[in-house]
């Protein structure tokens, strides 16, 4: 029984220049206690997928159709007041840019304690203890002093830790980490991700890790979904996908990774660029860039089929 089951999610943005199909029929499942990675190029709809699950899409954006079953409850159907109880307590989200994700006018201790105080009716003393414990959990030293700091005095890594403490404050079962390390330097990236894994193990929660970095996927992920133009083109266990990538796009992406021992060989690339989300190609949206493209690729959109156990791919090459 998966923890989260997303089916045919469609989120469009209605702009003056046309309809941007940011997420166009994405489907995937997230199991309990696993790290599920969502990979893809910039603009392929990873973040919008996450925000749609949280129901944080605002006009001109609109969630058109699809389901997001969380513990057998469709998050896209329940009333907003119910959704507010899900956010934070069941699912919460860490954002890309820790510089902007904290409120500049309050101390970090206040911000971390804010949500649990409201949700669980804690007294001041209990809230403070909980807050300092959380700050210790995310490995910020000297919790009592740090809690009284304003965000602008903290470093990027510390702010991201604070952000994580804030998001963990109501004990969620699912944490969505939207490129949590993109704006941090490499050593801090490793620390933050290690922390994420540690917390995940300790609290036995699931994590959706959104990234464009296959290195992180290989290192930390359990399962991975590759997204292209708002659709999931391939899903499978990380080991399977790395050993046997099926979709030409996944293969292309993996060819683009520099591999240490093959230093002299040329780095691969995918010809062409990401198509405009306003007018996506007909049929399989990858066909203009695909080396195996055939006539039927232009005409018909491939379905996500199970090629081998737990390994799904949406490509005409594998349809039977």
């Amino acid at each position: 029984m998966p923890l989260l089951d997303v089916k045919g999610l469609k989120t469009y943005f209605y702009t003056n220049r046309g309809v941007v199909k940011a997420v166009d029929g994405a489907s995937f499942t997230v199991n309990e206690n696993e790290i599920f990675c969502l990979v893809g190029e910039t603009g392929c709809g990873k973040s919008v997928t996450a925000l749609s699950i949280m129901r944080l899409i605002f006009p001109p954006g609109k969630i058109l159709s699809g389901k997001a079953l969380y513990k057998e409850e469709d998050l896209l159907k329940i009333p907003e007041s119910e959704m507010q109880k899900i956010r934070g307590r069941e699912i919460s989200m860490v954002f890309q840019n820790p510089m902007n994700s904290l409120n500049p006018v309050f101390t970090i201790g206040y911000q971390i304690s804010e949500a649990p105080t409201v949700h669980f009716n804690l007294s001041k003393k209990e809230a403070w203890k909980r807050t300092t414990d959380l700050i210790r959990d995310v490995k910020i030293t000297d919790a009592d002093t740090r809690a009284k700091c304003y965000p602008h005095v903290l470093s990027g890594g510390m702010r991201q830790r604070t952000m994580m403490a804030m998001m963990l404050s109501c004990n969620p079962n699912l944490l969505i980490a939207d490129e949590p390390t993109t704006s941090l330097d490499v050593t801090i990236q490793a620390q933050i991700l290690d922390l994420l894994i540690e917390i995940k193990k300790k609290r036995r929660m699931s994590v959706i890790l959104i990234t464009h970095n296959f290195g992180l996927v290989a290192e930390f992920g359990d399962r991975v979904a590759v997204m292209y133009c708002g659709k999931v083109v391939e899903i499978g266990d990380v080991t399977t996908i790395f050993r046997n990538p099926l979709h030409p796009y996944t293969r292309g992406l993996l060819r683009c990774l520099p591999i240490g021992y093959k230093r002299k060989s040329k780095l691969g690339f995918i010809p062409g660029t990401l198509p405009s989300p306003i007018d996506t190609p007909s049929g399989c949206s990858f066909h203009p860039r695909c080396e195996h493209s055939t006539k039927s690729c232009k005409l018909r959109e491939p379905e996500l089929v199970e090629y081998e156990k737990n390994h799904f791919v949406a490509c005409h090459l594998y349809e039977r």
Binding site: G88, S92, N100, E114
Partner: peptide, 26 residues
Amino acid sequence: EREFILAARSIGESSLNIIFRYLLPN
């Protein structure tokens, strides 16, 4: 439009709370 407002929403804050405890103090 700032990210901390989105963050506030994602931990389940209500609109009223967001206006008076996040936006107004700024």
